[in-house]
Design a protein around this nucleic acid. Sequence first.
DNA 1: TTGTACGCGTTATCAG
DNA 2: CTGATAACGCGTACAA
Lengths: 335, 335
Amino acid sequence: MTVSIKDVARIAGVSTASVSRVLSGKPGVGADTAERIRKVIEEMDYRPNLGARGLVKRTTGNIAVVVPRGSFILNNPFFSTILEGIAKGIDQTDYNMLMSFTSLQQKRLLETQAVDGAILFSPRNEELSLEWLKSIGLPIVVVGSYLENSPFPCVRPDDEDGIRQAVNALYQLGHRNIGIINGPMSSMHSIRCLNGYKSTMLELGLDYSDGKVFEIDEFDVFKATKAMAAFLNDHRKITGVVCSSDYLAMGVMKAATMIGLSVPEDLSVVGADDVPISDIITPSLSSVHVDLVGIGRKATSILMDLIQGKQIRKRDVVFKMEYVNRATTDVPKNS
Amino acid sequence: MTVSIKDVARIAGVSTASVSRVLSGKPGVGADTAERIRKVIEEMDYRPNLGARGLVKRTTGNIAVVVPRGSFILNNPFFSTILEGIAKGIDQTDYNMLMSFTSLQQKRLLETQAVDGAILFSPRNEELSLEWLKSIGLPIVVVGSYLENSPFPCVRPDDEDGIRQAVNALYQLGHRNIGIINGPMSSMHSIRCLNGYKSTMLELGLDYSDGKVFEIDEFDVFKATKAMAAFLNDHRKITGVVCSSDYLAMGVMKAATMIGLSVPEDLSVVGADDVPISDIITPSLSSVHVDLVGIGRKATSILMDLIQGKQIRKRDVVFKMEYVNRATTDVPKNS
DNA sequence: TTGTACGCGTTATCAG
DNA sequence: CTGATAACGCGTACAA
C-alpha cells in the first residue's frame, strides 16, 4: 500500500541508489535526472520509512524520556515544566520524544535499540538500576534529581541551597518555629532538602526536632492533605513551613484552611522550584525560583552532545535557586 | 557491538529461524534445543531489535500523541490530565508513546511510518489538515475537542452542556449578571462554550451582550490575566463568571484579586473540566466535572480497536459533565 | 524438528 | 554520473 523507494526508482526509470542520493541530498546525480526523480517523489507522495533507514544507519531518531511510574506524574507541575523545557530542546533537533510509563515498558524501551539516548527523571527503581543502565551503553542524562556518584551527567536545581534560602527568608520575617514539609525519603531530593533545612536551622540557632518535620509517605499531594492537616493541627506552634516543592506547598495551603488556619496570617508557606502556576494561585505562593524550563533544555542539549560523541566538560550542571517573596509569607502573628 | 539474532544462532549452533521461533514463542522447536537457545539468549543478554522486527511485521509498536504546538501546553492541567489517562491506557498495552512538538515534526512523525496510530488533541493547524490526515491512512482518534463532521472518532466532554450547568448554578445562587471568560474563537471548544452560554442566558431570560463575554487572544493564561483584570474592572456589574476551562478560571481569580475583587464575595467563578488541582487551590474552585482521565483512557482503547481493525460502533464518545459546588461561588453581594 | 533463503525499505560500497 | 548489490536485524514460507 505504501510506496517504497523501489517504486519511485521503477517509475522514474532509475536505480534505488539514485533515489536515495537525491533523498539525502548527496552529490553524484545529474541535474536532469535528479529533477525527474524529485518530481516522481512528489507525485507518488513518497515518504522514506524511518525504521528501515534506522536499521542501516543504526539510529532511530528518537530519545526516551523516562519519568517515574506512579499516578499523576504528568500533572505534577515540577515534572511537566521540565518536560516543557525538554520539548523546547527537542524542537531544535530532528528527534522525537518516546515515553513509556510502566517500568517494564521503560526497560524494554531502553534495551531494544528503540532510542538513541535517554533523559531520566529518577533512576530509582527496581528494574532500572544504575548498574543496568550503565550496561546498556546508551547516552543518558539525569534530570531534576541528584544522584550519588552517578555515571551520567545530571542537570538539577541546587535544592539544598533553595531550602536554605527559604528558611532564611522565614527567619528574617521573624519566624522562629519553622517546620518542613518534605517528600518521601526514598528520594535524594527529600534527603537533601532535609539536610539543607537542618543545617540552616542549626546555623540560625533555631530549635528543630522531629516534631517539626513532616514527611509524606507517597508522592500524592491529594492524598496527603489530610495527614498534613493533622500534623499542622498537632503542632500549632509552627508559624512557618518550608516545602520541598510547590506542589506540596499547595497541599499545605489546603491543609491549613482545612483546620482553620489562614495563610499567611496564621501560617507562612514557602514552596520550592517556583512552578508557573504558583504565581497564579491566590494567595500567590512564595517560593524559591529555579529555571525548570532551562533545566529541561540543558538536559536535552547535553544529551545531544553525548549522542554526537562529544566529551562533556562539566559532568553536572547545577541551576541556582533564588527566593521570590509573594503572598504566602508574612511576619508571624504574635510578633 | 550489540548482539544480533545471528550471533545467538551461531553460538547456540542453530539457525536464526529456531531462535526466532523461541523468541516469539511459536511451536516447532524441540524442548532441549529451545532450552539451549534460551540459555544462550540469557547469557548473551540478547534483545531483539524492534526496528528490524517492525520492518518485517509492518508495525512499530508506538503510537503518536499529537498536542497543539505552542508553549506550556504540557503545563496546562487539561492536557496533562488527559495525557495521564492516555498513559494509563497505554500501560495496558505494549505500545510506547511518541511525541513531537513542532507541527513540522508532527507531520514527519505521522507520515514516515513511525507509528501505528495517533491520538490528536487538536487537528487545527496549517500542516495537519483533516484532508491530509485522512490521506495518510493512519488509525486516528481525536481527543478533547469537538470536530465538525470529523472522519475520525472523537472522545470529548459535553462542554456545551457543561457551560449550561455552570450558568444555571450561578443563576440559582441568585446571579443575574453573568459573564463568560472564553478561549480563542479559533477552537471549536470556545465556540461551543459560547453557544452554551448564550442559549442558557436566553432560556433564563437573562440579558447578555458582548460586554459580558471576554475572549483571550492566545491560550496563555499568564499573559491574559492583565487583560482579564481590565475587563472585569470595566464591567463591575458582573457578579459571576463562567469559564471555558479551570485554567482560565484560575487566571480570573488572579485577575480579580489584582483589581481588589475578592472571590467569591465580590465575584463568583466557575471553571470547567474540574482538573485535579482545582480542589487543592484556595478557595477551591467550583467547576463542572468531567472524567478527563477516563477520556484519555477511552481514546486509547478506541485507538487500539482501530489498529486491530475492529469496527467502531459509536464513532463519537461524549463524556457527561456535572457541576460541583466548591468555594468560589456564593450568592451575589447585594442580594 | 530444523534449516535455507528470501523479503521488509533503506543506505553504502563498489563497478562500470 | 549511474546501477547492481550487499548489508542492517528479523520473520517466515518452504524445503529438508
